[in-house]
Measured scan of single mutants.
Amino acid sequence: CHSECLGNCSQPDDPTKCVACRNFYLDGRCVETCPPPYYHFQDWRCVNFSFCQDLHHKCKNSRRQGCHQYVIHNNKCIPECPSGYTMNSSNLLCTPCLGPCPKVCHLLEGEKTIDSVTSAQELRGCTVINGSLIINIRGGNNLAAELEANLGLIEEISGYLKIRRSYALVSLSFFRKLRLIRGETLEIGNYSFYALDNQNLRQLWDWSKHNLTITQGKLFFHYNPKLCLSEIHKMEEVSGTKGRQERNDIALKTNGDQASCENELLKFSYIRTSFDKILLRWEPYWPPDFRDLLGFMLFYKEAPYQNVTEFDGQDACGSNSWTVVDIDPPLRSNDPKSQNHPGWLMRGLKPWTQYAIFVKTLVTFSDERRTYGAKSDIIYVQTDATNPSVPLDPISVSNSSSQIILKWKPPSDPNGNITHYLVFWERQAEDSELFELDYCLKGLKLPSRTWSPPFESEDSQKHNQSEYEDSAGECCSCPKTDSQILKELEESSFRKTFEDYLHNVVFVPRKT
């Protein structure tokens, strides 16, 4: 048989008469490798580009789960590009990614509803959504962080984005990388972005840091009482949809009607710091009717980097990364020049730590249904340095008659930039024990000054392991946590139920 035959053949030295091919099969003959313009397919066939392209389009058009959109890589027609490569849609070739590779997620039936953290986790790592997304989240724990972890990498949506009755959302900033909504599939009414009845939605994105392009379709905003109209108009300008909307697409009466839409800028007039305090004062603000001013709200939190936005980490279910302080308005003076500047002394802060701070007014709604208010920009203030805590785990070892090696770990709280350490030492008198000992005694162990690591005695271990207080009263049991108490109650309830079950099964009433 021919060298490319495997198993047997019907005619000697003829690659077209093989029972099976050793390498690849091409047009009725066995070959060692697939010549151009053919590609290896499933490690035994040679196919042309049209064959591989037909497989790709067949799966793409069917949208069946589990099928493969075949691509070409290293002269092979394979189910998908290997790690580190992405497909070129024009020629199906796998090309190296520039940075992290995109991950295209194809949605069944063309859309997916995100109504819980669990459903959001199914899209973790996706960068391109081939379909439409509907966000409908009523509640949950730590929602802002969970949504950002699972949806934060999405850069492109081919269909539309719909935010509907998501009472738990305060902001859409968890879509931190969303840059493009194509609108290839539109919501009824030709809408590519749809926001309806979101009672706590206050911000779409921080438009000073976020760009969003909507290729096709219109915007729809109705019944978002805490979303200011200025935020919607800003989205029109940034996304390129200005002029597409009709009169009733953006409701003037049901958007922002319960919001404090600040239209003035508060400026800080005085800032002073110490290692654990920050004193702030800002310019006074009074609405047209000074009785509408209820006070100020001061927001602050630790910020290692200057990239904080107002609604980071917030949701309507209680999660809030900001510390909020309510401040009463100052006494009002008739003389504008003698107006008191409101302020606040922030206490209990960490030394040498940068804080993000902003302040906003708290006002009631005027009778004319106009909203007044003022808010400052987010500023960054760093507390002063102070003395560091003591170095940890000092170790001293003498390696000769004239040297001592000293080692330690950095302090747990540096409280500033540590530039150097101060080492103090003092000579001590020799131990009298060394002169009084009889060095001729056998088995004498000389006193040693070398360091030995501390260890816990058996008594201390027994005390720590004991669940009861000892007789001397030195140790006591740790208080039980809520989960331990709940577990004990469940076990007790189970024992009672099981005992009742045994009584009912074992003891049967005697027939009379």
Score class of each variant (00 low, 15 high):
Q314F: 10
L362T: 05
P329V: 05
S366P: 02
Q216N: 03
S171A: 08
L123D: 00
K267P: 05
Y380P: 00
R291F: 05
L252W: 12
H210A: 06
I188V: 13
R272F: 15
F193Y: 03
G243W: 03
G295Y: 02
G256Q: 04
I378K: 03
R347V: 11
K350R: 14
H210R: 14
V325G: 02
R138S: 15
S269H: 12
V363R: 06
L201I: 05
P342A: 09
G343L: 08
A303Y: 14
Y194A: 13
W352H: 13
I404M: 13
A385S: 06
S319F: 12
E246A: 05
K337F: 13
D115P: 03
G295W: 14
S158A: 13
E122Y: 07
K301E: 02
N399L: 09
F220K: 14
A149D: 11
Q245F: 05
R202I: 01
G139A: 04
P330Q: 11
R347C: 11
L108D: 00
T185P: 09
T353Y: 10
P336R: 04
G152I: 01
K226T: 05
V390L: 06
E236W: 15
K226P: 02
T113N: 06
L180I: 15
W352C: 15
V104T: 09
M297R: 01
S132Y: 01
D197M: 06
A149V: 14
S260P: 09
L294C: 06
S132M: 01
D384Q: 02
T241S: 09
I163R: 00
I154V: 12
F175S: 00
G243F: 08
Y167R: 10
D289F: 07
E109P: 13
L196Q: 15
L406G: 01
A145S: 10
R332M: 11
L143N: 08
R179I: 12
T386W: 05
D197T: 12
S402Y: 14
W344N: 11
T361G: 12
E283Q: 00
L406F: 13
G159E: 01
G159H: 02
L362N: 05
L161P: 01
S173D: 09
P288S: 11
L229Q: 13
S192L: 00
L219N: 04
R291D: 13
K350C: 14
S274I: 02
I232S: 02
P304S: 05
R202Q: 03
G159P: 00
Q245S: 10
W344L: 10
H341R: 11
D326N: 15
P342R: 05
N136R: 06
G189Y: 15
D289C: 14
D257M: 15
Y160W: 04
D289G: 04
I357G: 01
C317N: 10
T118S: 07
G295S: 05
I157L: 05
K226N: 13
T371K: 07
A251M: 10
S239P: 01
A385L: 01
K234N: 12
N399V: 08
S119C: 13
L204V: 05
L392T: 05
T361W: 03
P287R: 05
F299G: 05
Y167S: 02
F175Y: 02
L349S: 01
T383E: 00
D312M: 10
L293F: 09
P288R: 13
I188G: 10
W352T: 11
E109A: 07
V104H: 12
N320Y: 11
Q339L: 12
R138W: 02
S333W: 01
E184V: 09
R179N: 06
R179T: 12
P288F: 13
Y305G: 10
I232N: 01
L227G: 00
Q199W: 11
S401P: 04
A145E: 13
Q403C: 11
L133H: 00
F175T: 01
D206R: 03
T383Q: 00
I327R: 02
P330N: 09
N263D: 04
I137K: 05
G159R: 02
N190E: 06
N211Q: 13
L331K: 11
E264T: 08
L294T: 09
E236K: 13
I154S: 01
R202G: 06
L406S: 03
G125H: 13
L107Y: 05
K360V: 11
L201K: 00
K253F: 11
Q199T: 09
S398Y: 10
V363A: 12
D115V: 02
Q339N: 15
R179V: 08
I327Q: 02
A259G: 09
K407A: 00
P284I: 05
A144C: 08
A356L: 01
G140T: 05
R179M: 12
K209P: 04
V397G: 14
Q245I: 08
D393K: 15
S116C: 15
E237K: 13
K103W: 04
S119M: 13
S398F: 05
Y300H: 11
R347E: 12
R272L: 11
P351H: 05
N211D: 11
E148P: 09
L107P: 13
T371H: 10
D393P: 04
G295F: 15
A168G: 03
S319Q: 05
S171E: 10
E184M: 02
S173G: 05
S208A: 15
L229K: 10
T383V: 03
W322N: 02
L265C: 06
N320M: 07
R179F: 09
Y160I: 01
G373A: 02
D367P: 06
F296A: 05
L153Y: 05
Q258L: 13
K103R: 13
S166F: 06
M346A: 05
H222A: 05
G295R: 02
D326V: 02
A149S: 05
N150H: 13
T127V: 03
K409D: 07
L406P: 00
F193V: 12
T254A: 08
S171R: 08
Y355M: 02
Y300V: 07
R124H: 15
S119E: 08
Y191S: 11
T215V: 09
G140P: 13
S116P: 01
S173A: 10
S260M: 07
L266N: 01
S389H: 07
D292C: 09
V381R: 14
V104G: 04
I379K: 07
S321H: 11
E302D: 09
K301G: 05
D328H: 04
T353R: 07
F221G: 03
G110Q: 14
S158G: 03
P351F: 06
D292L: 11
Y285K: 05
Y191I: 14
R244D: 08
L349K: 01
L266H: 01
D197W: 02
I405A: 05
S338E: 13
Y300W: 05
P391M: 05
G217S: 03
H106E: 10
P336H: 06
Y380I: 02
L186T: 08
N150G: 04
Y305T: 10
D335C: 05
K253E: 12
R370Y: 08
E146S: 04
K112N: 02
T127I: 05
Q306M: 00
T213Q: 12
V397T: 09
L266D: 00
L265G: 06
Q258R: 09
W282A: 01
V104S: 12
G313P: 06
D335E: 15
L362P: 03
S173F: 06
V128Q: 01
N387D: 03
F299A: 15
T386S: 09
R244K: 14
E146G: 15
T185S: 12
G373C: 03
N387I: 09
T309W: 10
G217A: 02
N387G: 08
G110N: 04
L362C: 02
